[in-house]
Design a protein around this nucleic acid. Structure first.
Ligand SMILES: [Mn+2]
Ligand SMILES: [Mn+2]
Ligand SMILES: [Zn+2]
Ligand SMILES: [Zn+2]
Lengths: 124, 124
DNA sequence: TTTTAAAAGCGACTATGTCGCATTACTGGG
DNA sequence: CCCAGTAATGCGACATAGTCGCTTTTAAAA
């Protein structure tokens, strides 16, 4: 199960890094120079998530967006921050603001997905 | 644009009310006694959302779940509460806990979608 | 260089959700 | 009560997102 370095991995990661924001599969495919199969892109993205390189956010359009992780590894993930999806420029960005919550006794939270939708600073 | 009363509306609302939790279209169609077209169910659900009867939540599976509103009307909506999706029993419920956040200047939030995923009290 | 298993390509497939259009059936006004 | 107007439904088609099985390719260890 050891990972290999491939041009596809590099290309995908480079596009997301350059964008500086979360991206969906189709956005990545649109920005990427080489031609990569859709299924392959998804597999690359999901592997990056497993490895703590990216994290996945589900927006209000029901689509998956992938963003760079900051300080995660395979065991410790800290994605409990808000995300903002702009309805004008369509971008989804990670906000620094941490999600704080308390839940009823007996509940065990494994994952947090918080997305605020509206108009971003640039588009206001 | 005045709404009419139809058996479909009644059936859909009754199923959701009886369930006491958020439901997806396919769950509703599965629970309902009469046979209703899929597109119709979505239209009914979306109309209920417009009218402040239901609210829509996007879970981590990317699907839309519809839950009864508590104290909303067409103009004032207060859905800034957390939701919990259990990975075992698959149910999605509204939590009483309010979502509190602060965002950078210049951002305008129009909608909030916060879902915690994990194992619920019953399934623990 | 050989080996081997991870990764990529391809096609098929499964949802999920929406839309246009023809038909049905509430409902308010007479 | 009846009719006209129009909201709501059924149906089919469609678009998109994401996954899966299988074959082929290729990175990298031996
Ligand atoms: Mn993030
Ligand atoms: Mn809710
Ligand atoms: Zn914007
Ligand atoms: Zn449960």
């Amino acid at each position: 199960m050891k990972r290999r370095n491939t041009p596809t991995k590099e290309a995908v990661l480079s596009v997301i890094t350059k964008a500086g924001q979360a991206m969906s599969q189709d956005a990545i495919e649109g920005e990427i120079s080489i031609d990569i199969n859709r299924a392959t892109i998804y597999r690359v993205l999901n592997r990056f998530c497993e490895d703590g390189v990216l994290h996945k956010v589900i927006a209000e359009d029901g689509k998956q967006y992938f963003a760079l992780c900051d300080g995660c590894d395979e065991t410790h993930q800290k994605h409990q921050h808000f995300h903002f999806k702009c309805t004008v420029c369509e971008t989804l960005e990670c906000l620094p603001n941490e999600v704080k919550f308390s839940i009823p006794n007996g509940y065990h939270v494994e994952d947090v997905n918080c997305v605020l939708t509206g108009v971003c600073k640039k588009c206001s």
